[in-house]
């Protein structure tokens, strides 16, 4: 047992965060202000997500942490270690075995179930921020459902690029009411947000928590003549051969060789263990 209180935060702070989470779940997509604490990591490294996870974890939970889909990158490793030390909870890399999954910028490929919680790290929770810098004004726009401005952004995309070029942090409307920033997940993941698991979003620096309850309607904004498309690289995974997963492009050498691999490392590994193989699968193994 460590000398920290369970999951680092004191019990009063966790209560405060839980109240914000419950309010967020009661009003899907609404950004609930909360008294974000200083965490032993820099802003931008997931302080919001960590606080939400800390308030959500119980000693019986199994935690999985991913960063851009990967379990083995710096951010994921350090947050996983953090909770191993301060909460002594079991950790896993397998999506199906985890009860709480903290994620940065991806939704796992494997379908989540009702007994799981997905915690997102959010840098900027306000979807209207880059168009309307005044917080007083954006709050009013949410309150009065004045969301025309969000379409101005999409309009600008089409007029400049011929298509909606927004590829991540693609704005969604939750349960027909609040427009929400789904955090910088690729728009490929947007359709997955109507899921069985609870989705919690924590923004530490901006001091906001919001949530999407299970089976909530999440609609990606679009135009009638330019409908939403969940896009991905037009390849299959070079390691596991998956056609349906979101891919990272990796430059291999100076000669322009490249490979595409699943960004979800657990999904890729489990497929390779099941015997699937892609273009470069044999070499890598």
């Amino acid at each position: 047992m460590s000398d920290y209180n369970f999951a680092y935060l004191d019990e009063q702070t966790k209560r405060m965060i839980r109240r914000a989470i419950l309010k967020g779940l009661a009003v899907p997509g609404y950004q609930v202000p909360f008294a974000s604490r200083e965490m032993p990591m820099p802003y931008g490294w997931g302080t919001g997500g960590v606080q939400v996870s800390a308030a959500t974890l119980t000693p019986e939970d199994t935690l999985k942490v991913i960063d851009q889909g990967a379990d083995d990158t710096t951010n994921a490793v350090s947050i996983r270690k953090f909770f191993e030390r301060t909460a002594c909870v079991a950790t896993t890399e397998e999506t199906a075995n985890a009860s709480v999954i903290q994620t940065r910028h991806r939704i796992p490929e494997a379908e989540l179930s009702e007994d799981q919680i997905l915690v997102y790290q959010v840098p900027i929770p306000e979807p209207l921020r880059f168009l309307e810098p005044r917080e007083t004004e954006t709050r009013k726009m949410h309150a009065l459902q004045e969301y025309g401005l969000m379409h101005v952004k999409l309009y600008e995309d089409i007029s400049q690029h011929g298509a909606i070029a927004t590829a991540y942090a693609y704005p969604v409307k939750v349960e027909g009411r609040y427009v929400m920033d789904p955090s910088p997940i690729p728009k490929f993941d947007n359709p997955k947000m109507e899921m069985a698991a609870i989705q919690l979003f924590g923004a530490g620096r901006e001091q906001r928590i919001y949530a999407v309850p299970p089976y909530t309607k999440v609609v990606s904004l679009d135009f009638e003549d330019y409908p939403f498309e969940a896009s991905k690289a037009d390849h299959s995974c070079d390691l596991c051969g998956a056609e349906d997963s979101y891919l990272d492009e990796v430059i291999l050498d100076d000669a322009g060789n490249r490979m595409f691999v699943c960004s979800d490392t657990d999904y890729c590994r489990s497929r390779r263990e099941a015997g699937h193989s892609g273009r470069l699968g044999e070499e890598a193994a």
Partner: peptide
């Protein structure tokens, strides 16, 4: 809106009252 194109500036009010067809905007 100085950071939005002329077309977007004109279209904003249309989109604010619910126009969702890029071509007609």
């Amino acid at each position: 809106r100085m950071s939005v194109s002329a077309g977007g500036n004109i279209g904003e009010r249309l989109m604010a009252v619910g126009d969702r067809h890029y071509g007609s905007i």
